[in-house]
């Protein structure tokens, strides 16, 4: 495990020495504060809108950080050739993948903590109540979802040679799942065979990332998701993470590397 933690430490250091995270945090803060300072049409529900905007920005920023960070990890190792002194040590390729995943996931977790801390301050100072458990649950579920996304992107970074192509494809896939994933079964019902079966297969195969989106519960104070459901969602995410990491390892272990 030493190797995995060492590798993840480097990923975290890299992320926090780059400017992306700070830019996204400042951007989220500025947009939220600007939106919060305006009182559109004397709307009493301005706090609800404010929370909606802030959480949407957090979701977008977290996805950008997760996909951007994960997409460049292994291609950058190969392009800058840092993979060679690394693999010349007693390090397996599985450890490299695991270390990269752990680093990206922990880095995203740290970013989420900062983003949610800001969200708690913004919503708390406006609403004067602090449903911290709801916020924690929302953050946890988002973090689990980011784990699945990171594993998917890492797998993509081994399959596709260009990090930009991988990042774009993964972003489209993730956005697609988040927006239409839950409707695919209804779409399938309206299709003739064999398209119907095909859409059903896709519906049951894709990771349903939209299940992790509990923003509405937070925005409208609808209470907590049952903890059992939360645990099951975590387990469901873990299965997909392992699947993508394993697929990534299968593709990476036979890759020829030449100095």
């Amino acid at each position: 495990m030493n190797t995995v933690w060492a590798l993840s430490g480097v990923v975290i250091k890299e992320l926090y020495r780059r400017k992306d995270f700070y830019v996204l945090l400042v951007l989220t803060a500025l947009i939220t504060i600007a939106a919060g300072s305006a009182n559109f049409f004397n709307d009493e529900k301005i706090v609800t809108h404010l929370k909606d905007i802030c959480l949407l920005l957090i979701w977008i920023s977290a996805l950008v950080i997760a996909i951007g960070t994960a997409a460049r990890q292994i291609p950058a190792e190969r392009e800058q050739r840092t993979i060679f002194p690394l693999l010349a040590k007693p390090v397996t390729r599985w450890q490299v993948i695991l270390g990269k995943f752990a680093g990206c996931w922990l880095a995203c977790g740290l970013a989420l903590v900062v983003f949610y801390a800001f969200f708690v301050v913004v919503s708390g100072t406006r609403e004067h109540h602090w449903p911290l458990l709801n916020y924690f649950q929302a953050m946890w579920l988002q973090w689990v979802m980011l784990g699945v996304v990171i594993a998917l992107v890492l797998f993509g970074s081994i399959v596709f040679s260009a990090p930009s192509a991988n990042a774009t494809i993964c972003f489209v896939v993730v956005a697609g799942i988040l927006m239409i994933g839950r409707h695919l079964n209804k779409v399938a019902l309206q299709q003739p065979e064999p398209v119907q079966s095909l859409v059903y297969v896709v519906y049951f195969l894709i990771p349903h990332l939209e299940w992790y989106d509990v923003r509405d519960l937070v925005i409208y104070d609808h209470g907590l998701v049952p903890w059992v459901d939360c645990g099951l969602a975590t387990l469901y995410g873990a299965v997909y993470v392992l699947f993508f990491l394993f697929a990534g390892w299968l593709a990476f272990r036979r890759k020829t590397l030449s100095v």
């Binding site: 030493n2 060492a6 250091k13 800058q80 840092t82 060679f84 010349a88 040590k89 390090v91 100095v259």
Partner: peptide, 23 residues
């Protein structure tokens, strides 16, 4: 290696500590 292939955002001390952890 013939050319230097190291994480350039790390300091020399951090790089050595990283490899020390691996071992």
């Amino acid at each position: 290696p013939e050319n230097t292939y190291y994480y350039k955002f790390l300091t020399a001390e951090e790089l050595l500590r990283f490899y020390a952890r691996i071992f």
